[in-house]
Design a binder for these strands. Structure first.
Lengths: 145, 145
DNA sequence: ATTTTTCTTGCAATCAAGTTGCATTTGCAT
DNA sequence: ATGCAAATGCAACTTGATTGCAAGAAAAAT
């Protein structure tokens, strides 16, 4: 079985990721990366903690790790649906909107949807736009009954 | 001097607003509406409390009031830039993106910018989209140095 | 292989935004 | 004027997340 690769054809396994950004390979970080690699949608710190389950990593360490990963661009941080941060592995994908179900709280990446172009030039002079995000909220098929 | 009007030509003063939605005209609500009417950008509960200043309204009451206003569509609630809710008077405007300065935290409405159309049909069947928001984050001219 | 250095973690305390329960007060219809 | 539903203030609490610090684990140096 092949190792997963990202869009640039780079292998994505915890050890390689950690080595590539000069972080020590600790059990907690590996477990967190295992979960994020497995998943194709952004999850909250809470869900991550739940998934880590019994062999718990301390919440403080989880949040610290996520922030380190975010600073090193190992993960994306998605804010905005319900004021809870969600994290997803940075696979080098294009920017895309996210859909969050109001009931079950699951967030999904709308990778099939083209990211609409915002006419930034029509903004007043002098603004520097660093991040753009589009967020849809509603009901997913399962929660819609 | 004329009283301010919204897009439907309805006068927007605290007393009228409160009467129109069957809420009691209390001092706190009037003060909050005064501030929101005056402002053309969404503000946080914190900023609202600061502006209420010395003649303080209790934080719990402010947040309760904002929620009541939101439920009655008197105000918009904008989430997403930094996981802090911001509120702006509902003037019946079209949906528009918001820009938040990473440094000073001020949010502005990008009313001059057309709201890009998201191709919701390209989403899988069964989703119900209730809200859509577009959020830009960066530096405003003042904070850009 | 062992020591040393540096980085990480766990734990507990803390923070900030926001909510809730409840007794008291206030607006307003009568 | 007065009676009652609605709103407020206060304090306690919730939740997501951060921080200080002592103890522990990786990687580097010997």
């Amino acid at each position: 079985m092949d190792t997963a690769k990202n869009m640039e054809g780079v292998a994505i396994d915890p050890t390689t990721i950690l080595k590539n950004c000069g972080l020590k390979r600790t059990l907690g970080r590996v477990k967190i990366l295992d979960i994020l690699i497995e998943l194709d949608r952004p999850i909250t710190g809470k869900e991550l903690l739940n998934r880590l389950g019994t062999d718990a990593v301390d919440p403080a360490s989880v949040y610290r790790t996520l922030n380190v990963f975010f600073d090193l661009e190992v993960v994306h941080k998605i804010e905005g649906a319900d004021n809870i941060n969600r994290y997803a592995l940075n696979r080098g994908e294009d920017m895309h909107p996210h859909f969050t179900c109001r009931t079950c709280g699951k967030m999904e990446c709308l990778t099939m949807t083209t990211f609409p172009h915002i006419d930034i030039d029509s903004m007043e002079e002098g603004y520097l736009v660093e991040r753009e995000s589009i967020s849809l909220v509603g009901l997913c098929p399962r929660c819609r009954l």
